[in-house]
C-alpha cells in the first residue's frame, strides 16, 4: 500500500493524473475509433524514432559514461549522407558518382545507398571518438560532456553553412505514401520506423550477450577490472561511438519523415531531434536499453496524444505546446524515480 507521505506525492500525483487521462482516452476511442487508432500508431511511430535516438545515447553513455550532446548533429549528418548519395547521387565529400543508385529497382539502389550512408556515419563516430574523446579518458566527465556540446555546435555550423542543409531531399521511395487500416491512415515511414526499432533493440539485446557486448558491459561496470582481463578499453569506446553514431543517423533519417516531419528533407531543424528525444533518454535511465525503449514510447505517446486531443480543447494552450509535453513527462518521471525508470543509482559503483 502506498502511504501518503512526502516521498510519495509525485507518485500519487502521477496516478491521480493517469486515471482521468485514461478515462478521457477511452471515451475518445469509443467516439472515433479510426482517429484513435491513427493517433496511436502515429504515437508509436514517434516513440520508435525517440527510442532509436535514445538507444544511441545509452550505448555511448553506458560504455563511456559520457552524455553525448553531439547526437543531434550526428543525426543530421547521417541524413545528409543519405541526401548526398541518393539526391546528388555522389559519394559524400567527393565528385565520384554513387554507383549503387542504379542497381536493380529504385528501392534496392536507395536501400544500398542508405547502408553506405550508415557506414559514413559510423566512420564519423569513430573519428570523433578518436580525436576528441579518447584523449580525455580519465578526465572529469563533465569536461567530456562539454566537449560533445562543443562538437554539436561545430558540426551543426558545418552542416548548415558549409554543406548547406537547406532542404536536401532524401527521396525515400515511398514518399509520404501509406495504407489505410480500419479507417486509419498509416504512413509507410511510421511502419518502417517501428520495424527498424524492433530490429535495433533485438540487435542490441543480442549484442550485449555477445563476447564484444559482454566486454562493453564489463568496461561500463569497472574499467580497470575490464583492462585487467585484457579487454581493450579504447576499442570498446570506438565500437560504442560507431554504433551510437549509426543509431543517431537512423534517427536523423526518420526525423525527416512522418510523423516527425512531412517534408522528407534534411533541414537545419533536423538536428533538434536529439534534444526532443532527450526526455526519453533521461526518463528511461541513461544506462538502460530497456529504459530507452520504454522512455521513447512513453514520451512519443504523450506528445502525440496531447497534440491530438488536448491542443484544440483550450484556448490558453498554444499550438506549439505538444513539444514541451516530453519535458513535463520527464520531470514528473524524475520526481518519482530520480535515476530514470530503469537507470542504476550511482551508489552501486563504490
Amino acid at each position: 500500500m502506498i502511504r501518503l507521505d512526502r516521498d510519495n506525492v509525485p507518485l500519487l500525483f502521477l496516478i491521480g493524473a493517469l486515471i482521468p487521462t485514461t478515462i478521457f482516452l477511452v471515451i475518445q476511442a469509443v467516439n472515433d475509433p479510426a482517429l484513435f487508432l491513427e493517433t496511436l500508431i502515429k504515437a508509436l511511430g514517434l516513440g520508435a524514432v525517440y527510442a532509436l535516438i535514445a538507444l544511441g545515447f545509452v550505448l555511448i553513455f553506458k560504455a563511456t559514461q559520457t552524455v553525448n550532446f553531439a547526437q543531434g548533429a550526428l543525426a543530421a549528418a547521417g541524413a545528409l549522407f543519405v541526401s548526398f548519395l541518393v539526391a546528388d547521387e555522389h559519394i559524400p565529400f567527393t565528385t565520384v558518382p554513387n554507383p549503387l543508385i542504379n542497381i536493380g529497382p529504385e528501392w534496392l539502389g536507395w536501400g544500398l545507398s542508405v547502408l553506405v550512408a550508415l557506414i559514413f556515419a559510423a566512420l564519423l563516430g569513430l573519428i570523433i571518438e578518436r580525436i576528441t574523446i579518447r584523449p580525455m579518458v580519465g578526465e572529469p566527465l563533465f569536461s567530456v560532456a562539454v566537449i560533445t556540446l562543443g562538437l554539436e555546435i561545430v558540426l551543426r555550423v558545418f552542416n548548415n553553412d558549409t554543406v548547406k542543409t537547406e532542404f536536401r531531399a532524401l527521396e525515400i521511395p515511398w514518399g509520404n505514401g501509406g495504407t489505410t487500416v480500419g479507417g486509419a491512415f498509416i504512413n509507410y515511414s511510421v511502419i518502417a520506423a517501428l520495424i527498424t526499432a524492433v530490429v535495433a533493440f533485438v540487435g542490441v539485446f543480442f549484442f550485449y550477450r555477445s563476447k564484444t557486448g559482454i566486454a562493453m558491459r564489463a568496461v561500463a561496470f569497472d574499467q580497470e577490472a575490464a583492462m585487467a582481463q585484457g579487454i581493450n578499453v579504447g576499442r570498446v569506446f570506438a565500437i560504442a561511438w560507431a554504433a551510437g553514431a549509426v543509431l543517431a543517423a537512423i534517427g536523423g533519417i526518420f526525423a525527416t519523415q512522418p510523423p516527425v516531419k512531412q517534408t522528407g528533407a534534411v533541414e537545419p531543424e533536423t538536428a533538434n531531434i536529439a534534444f526532443r528525444a532527450l526526455p526519453a533518454v533521461i526518463l528511461g535511465g541513461l544506462d538502460s536499453a530497456t529504459g530507452a525503449l520504454l522512455g521513447g514510447l512513453i514520451v512519443g505517446l504523450a506528445e502525440i496524444f496531447a497534440g491530438q486531443y488536448a491542443a484544440g480543447e483550450s484556448d490558453w494552450l498554444g499550438a506549439g505546446y505538444p513539444v514541451i509535453v516530453p519535458y513535463i513527462v520527464m520531470i514528473i518521471g524524475l520526481l518519482v524515480r530520480p535515476y530514470g525508470l530503469f537507470g542504476t543509482p550511482e551508489i552501486r559503483r563504490v
Partner: peptide
C-alpha cells in the same frame, strides 16, 4: 585483483 572486482551485474 585485490577485492575480487567481479562484474557484479553480470
Amino acid at each position: 585483483m585485490e577485492g575480487r572486482r567481479v562484474f557484479a551485474e553480470m
